[in-house]
Computed example of a mutant assay.
Amino acid sequence: MSDQQPTSPSKRPPRQSRTGLTSTGVKKAASKSDRSRARGFALQGLYQHLVGRNPADDIDTFTRDLLGFNKADAAHFDALLHGCIEHATELNALIEPHLDRPWLEISPIEHGVMWIGAYEFKFCPDVPWRVVLNECIELAKEFGGTDGHKYVNGVLNGLAPQLRSAEVQADRAKKA
């Protein structure tokens, strides 16, 4: 049967580079720190709380059974999940002056990311403000809408000088 066409080589997707980032610029799972993983799981839990009004203890139990949780910093996860829910009113009050729209128009993902950022700024002084900001931008890129990370960046950049004034001023003075 010489009339048959030769089969074309299989179409494979292009290989991703091994830089630790996906093609969309998000950190690959293997390159994430324990705390980064904890933030991701906390965000998923905060989403459940914001959308489904699920209680923190139920979310906690459910999340600990998820694949990969054993690689996360469980203590930081606890602090973020329970702390953000416990201090939700205070965190919303801190964030709200930096918003350009009502809370109802903010995606629950961006809302949760901003809670995490505000919580870490206020209650986790061991985490540098730049790390908080960068981690929140990464969360918004990974879980949020197309440009949600830009909005989160703007809001948290406005909030940082209020909650970490000495650290922000010292960091900016180094750059000048």
Results as ranks from 00 to 15, higher is better:
residue 34 D to K: 09
residue 35 R to P: 06
residue 36 S to I: 02
residue 36 S to R: 01
residue 38 A to H: 06
residue 38 A to K: 08
residue 39 R to D: 14
residue 39 R to G: 08
residue 39 R to T: 08
residue 41 F to K: 07
residue 42 A to R: 04
residue 43 L to F: 04
residue 43 L to Y: 03
residue 43 L to W: 05
residue 44 Q to W: 09
residue 44 Q to D: 10
residue 45 G to D: 12
residue 46 L to Q: 14
residue 47 Y to T: 07
residue 49 H to G: 15
residue 50 L to Y: 12
residue 52 G to S: 11
residue 54 N to G: 09
residue 55 P to K: 12
residue 55 P to C: 15
residue 56 A to L: 01
residue 58 D to Q: 03
residue 59 I to C: 11
residue 61 T to V: 09
residue 64 R to Q: 05
residue 64 R to V: 01
residue 64 R to D: 01
residue 66 L to V: 02
residue 66 L to S: 01
residue 68 G to I: 00
residue 74 A to L: 01
residue 78 D to A: 03
residue 80 L to E: 13
residue 81 L to D: 11
residue 87 H to T: 07
residue 88 A to F: 00
residue 89 T to F: 02
residue 89 T to N: 01
residue 90 E to Y: 02
residue 91 L to K: 04
residue 93 A to P: 04
residue 94 L to T: 09
residue 94 L to A: 07
residue 95 I to F: 02
residue 95 I to E: 01
residue 96 E to Y: 04
residue 97 P to G: 03
residue 98 H to F: 10
residue 99 L to H: 11
residue 101 R to H: 15
residue 102 P to M: 02
residue 103 W to R: 03
residue 106 I to D: 06
residue 106 I to N: 03
residue 108 P to K: 06
residue 111 H to I: 10
residue 112 G to V: 12
residue 113 V to A: 10
residue 114 M to G: 09
residue 115 W to N: 08
residue 116 I to L: 11
residue 117 G to R: 12
residue 117 G to C: 08
residue 119 Y to A: 04
residue 123 F to L: 07
residue 124 C to V: 04
residue 125 P to Q: 04
residue 125 P to H: 12
residue 127 V to P: 12
residue 129 W to K: 00
residue 129 W to Q: 02
residue 129 W to D: 00
residue 130 R to E: 14
residue 131 V to S: 08
